Simulated assay, not measured.
Amino acid sequence: MQYADLHIHTTASDGSDTPSEVVHKALEIGLRAIAISDHDTMDGVLEAERAAEKFNLEVISGVEVNTFFEGKEIHILGYLIDPCNEKFVAKLKELQGDRMTRIKKMVDKLNKLNIKIELERVLELSSGGSVGRPHIARALVERGYVLTLQEAFTNYLGVGKPAFVSREKLSPKEAIRLITRAKGVPVLAHPGLSKINTYLLDLVNEGLKGLEVWHKNHTPLMVEYYAEIAKKYNLVPTGGSDYHGSAHDTCNILGGAVAPFDSVQLLKNAHQKLF
């Protein structure tokens, strides 16, 4: 059976592997398709496509849009959007500006807690990509305030923690509309983590087309449950490892969770219906 890892991050956002490195690793483990789905950017997609040109590996364009709803972070994946779509790319740049404002506020909060890290170093760690909390976490590890990236989130950067700043400007429904307008297929990421089951029907009515059934942090019972939910609402079942690179403490195994290759065709079918 052929498999696809449809949730992968690269150095274009908060991953530690370049898009080309991801492609080569995907080939090594025998994946049939991958989706580059960085946070609020599609800058890594074209590089991955070029790296895979001569191989039997399909690269799906993707993006992960971070939203906030009722005190929870909700991530919406968007698939098969043209990475050269000027209007969509411009909106992503706007979201990256929001990210920068948020990162500055988090660094300020840490400094007020007498945890001295510099914004300039956080930006250096992002290597010019879409900056995010993992880059702050890496700075905290560097300075010895925590031992691991996960500890940084547990103690300071996670929802409700002392240095957390929410993104309240974009709701899940707005993200779905944004992706749909760009002729993309909106999919709810890792529903087992966001735990918004009672809100799911509202998202379906707004235009949600898929559900991430297979994910590194989904238990077998969760997979079974969300597979049934996807079937009930006629949503495309997708899945992926949420890979962030080998330098990360968690989500560091490419192909650690996969979807059957059939999911790729189902995404394409959903995409065709948008035209």
Rank of each mutant, 00 (worst) to 15 (best):
C251F: 12
D98I: 13
T198K: 15
P237C: 06
E58G: 01
G129I: 10
H24M: 13
I229T: 01
S37I: 02
D242M: 01
Y3S: 12
Y225H: 15
P220T: 10
G30H: 10
E94S: 05
T10C: 10
L95R: 06
G132K: 01
L266E: 15
H190N: 11
V258H: 06
I74M: 08
L267M: 13
K183M: 04
G239F: 07
S13P: 10
L201G: 00
L57P: 05
Q272Y: 09
A182Q: 00
F88V: 02
G144Y: 09
F88R: 02
V213E: 09
N56T: 08
G44E: 06
M1F: 10
K54Q: 13
D242R: 01
E212R: 01
L123D: 02
G71A: 04
T67Q: 03
P19F: 09
L170F: 12
K104W: 00
A227C: 02
Q96R: 15
V131W: 02
L119A: 00
R133Q: 07
E70N: 13
Y79R: 11
N197V: 08
G129T: 12
S13A: 11
L92A: 07
G132R: 01
P191Q: 08
L193Y: 13
F275E: 14
V165H: 07
S263Y: 04
V258I: 15
R32I: 00
K216A: 14
L235G: 04
V146Q: 05
V159D: 03
H135D: 06
K231Y: 04
Y243K: 03
E58R: 14
G144A: 11
Y145A: 03
A189N: 09
V107E: 09
K195A: 14
L119V: 05
G128I: 09
K87M: 02
I196A: 04
F261E: 11
T198Q: 13
H75C: 06
L274I: 15
S263L: 02
T67Y: 01
S130P: 11
I76C: 10
E168I: 08
V63P: 12
N111M: 05
V187D: 03
N111T: 11
K209W: 03
D202V: 02
S246L: 12
D82N: 15
L266V: 07
E86D: 14
V107M: 07
G158W: 05
L235R: 01
L57R: 05
A90K: 14
T198I: 08
T10F: 06
E174K: 15
N217I: 01
N111K: 14
V89R: 13
I176Q: 08
G62C: 04
V258L: 12
A257F: 09
N56L: 06
A48P: 13
G44P: 02
I179R: 07
C251R: 14
I176E: 06
